[in-house]
């Protein structure tokens, strides 16, 4: 276990690491730009005439119209997923809770797909995000109501609830695909695979505030989430209004999931693996776990997206597929470990 000083060091390390992968990711692609030129371009826009400008033809445009929105959205999505995972695990008192696994991501995707298919645009560019949020809230409440017994959630119940919710959401997505035209089918298929290819500044402008609000709430709740680890009653004995905490946390989870899903589709397992790794390094205290999981999630998604778009020339791997390839086996390992420790599927 780390000391408080080292825990702050971990946060600092993650911030520096995130900045480094962001600069690296912004430089890689069909128009290569060196990290110093990326930094130079940024500083010039900030009004500081320091560092070299991109020397490549169209370099400045490639950075500001394509790469930066994509990297920033990757940071937002990753931070939302990591934070949502940590928050959900805290509220469920179960290290296997995660928006993708329990089906909240699918629920949010159904909401967003319904908005796409129906062509409703009452809220402008916010429509998809709002629909994803609504889908996320409804699903989180359903999962919460169905999987809890006596103040805690058993692993089996949680995972099986996730199976049921994911199956239902999959059916609804299939139905929406059946009802819509070719463009709609393509849009929904894109959802299920998960990708950052459609990142724009307007997407950032919608997902960013949702993510920030969710993150702020999660950080504010972190001390109370620690107490919740004792169980619902003991937490109340220590002054936590558990009913209120639960509702606020569920809304925040849905907000974070919506910001992660609204423009990129389902990117699973980030919220499961990242908080788990952070817990192994820094212990389960949420005051470090929540911000560190957000930063760690951002590092993972920015790196994952970099690999997804540069691994194969002139082709792009869907990011959701990539995270699932790594996350799936890691989930197996986590399940086995939890089982070994609990002496069964309790």
């Amino acid at each position: 276990m780390l000391t408080a000083y080292k825990k702050m060091g971990l946060i600092g390390f993650l911030i520096v690491g995130l900045a480094a992968v962001c600069v690296l990711a912004a430089g890689r692609g069909q128009v290569p730009i060196s990290p110093s030129e990326v930094a130079g371009s940024l500083l010039h826009r900030l009004g500081l005439g320091i560092g070299p400008l991109p020397s490549a033809v169209q370099g400045e445009n490639a950075l500001w119209l394509v790469r930066f929105p994509r990297v920033v959205l990757a940071v937002i999505v990753g931070a939302s997923l990591g934070c949502a995972g940590a928050l959900m695990q805290g509220v469920f008192g179960n290290p296997l809770a995660e928006p993708g696994v329990v089906g909240v991501s699918s629920g949010a995707a159904v909401g967003a797909a319904a908005a796409i298919v129906s062509g409703i645009t009452v809220l402008g560019s916010w429509t998809t995000a709002a629909a994803a949020f609504a889908g996320g809230v409804v699903t989180t409440f359903i999962v919460y109501a169905m999987s809890r017994a006596g103040g805690r959630t058993e692993v089996v119940t949680l995972v099986l609830t996730g199976v049921a919710v994911n199956a239902t959401a999959g059916a609804l997505l299939g139905l929406l695909m059946f009802l819509t035209d070719d463009d709609g089918v393509r849009a929904i298929a894109f959802w299920q695979l998960g990708s950052l290819a459609q990142a724009t500044w307007s997407a950032v402008a919608v997902a960013g505030p949702c993510a920030l609000a969710g993150l702020a709430v999660a950080v504010a709740l972190s001390r109370r989430l620690d107490l919740l680890a004792l169980g619902e009653r003991p937490a109340r004995h220590l002054g936590v209004d558990t009913e209120r905490l639960r509702i606020i946390a569920i809304v925040a989870t849905a907000l974070l999931t919506a910001s992660a899903v609204a423009f990129t589709g389902i990117i699973s397992f980030v919220g499961l693996i990242v908080p788990h790794l952070i817990r192994m390094i820094a212990g389960p205290g949420h005051r470090v776990l929540v911000p560190a999981s957000a930063l760690g999630g951002a590092v993972v998604v920015v790196t994952g997206d970099l690999i997804a778009r540069t691994a194969i020339d002139y082709q792009e791997l869907p990011l959701g597929v990539l995270t699932a390839v790594v996350g799936g086996p890691a989930f197996f390992w986590l399940l086995r470990r939890t089982r070994a420790r609990a002496g069964g599927w309790g």
Partner: peptide, 21 residues
């Protein structure tokens, strides 16, 4: 709840903890 928490403490029959604090 918070006012009550400053007046009385409760020891439950069984101590549980979801995460390894």
């Amino acid at each position: 709840p918070i006012e009550l928490a400053r007046l009385r403490a409760v020891l439950p029959q069984k101590a549980a903890l979801s995460f390894p604090f």
